[in-house]
């Protein structure tokens, strides 16, 4: 069951502003910016829509990479960029309205930054087993 086609284009951080500008010039509206933690990197999706055509630009960045703000192109993007900063701890340069980490006030800083606890638990277990078997072989 597929309701609509969803295009995802992988791009680099350097070409982000250019690609977003192209989208803006073509008359797309910014739908959302969202992050996902994958292994040791962050995946950031910039979603756009025009006439019910839903498209995404995807940037994959390492842990300490700072992102350029697209708020010069889409004025309303500050809300997502501040969210990205507060929940994931990803630095964003050049936001038009910068809350300096006070948009979401959380009990622990950047709660979404760390990889899911579930995988963390499983990895040492596996390693233990591997160590045991490798130890036995030796």
């Amino acid at each position: 069951m597929t309701i609509e086609e969803q295009l995802i284009t992988e791009i680099t951080v350097e070409s982000l502003l250019e690609e977003v500008k192209t989208k803006s010039d073509a008359g797309y509206r910014l739908v959302q910016i969202g992050c996902t933690r994958i292994e040791d990197a962050f995946e950031i999706n910039y979603s756009f829509e025009k006439d019910y055509r839903f498209e995404n630009l995807r940037v994959t960045i390492g842990e300490d990479v700072r992102m350029p703000s697209i708020s010069d192109i889409y004025w309303g993007s500050f809300i997502y960029e501040n969210e990205m900063h507060d929940l994931y701890g990803i630095g964003v340069d050049g936001m038009n309205i910068d809350f300096n980490g006070y948009l979401f006030k959380t009990s622990i800083p950047h709660p979404f930054r760390d990889a899911p606890a579930v995988t963390v638990k499983k990895v040492p277990k596996k390693m233990d087993e591997e160590n045991k078997t490798s130890g036995g072989e030796e």
Binding site: G34, C35, T36, R37, G76, I79, Y80, P116
Partner: peptide
Amino acid sequence: KFLVRERVRTPTLTNIPP
């Protein structure tokens, strides 16, 4: 069994800049 990520973008959040 567990999803990696669920991200909800709600209408109110995007209506704040307007």
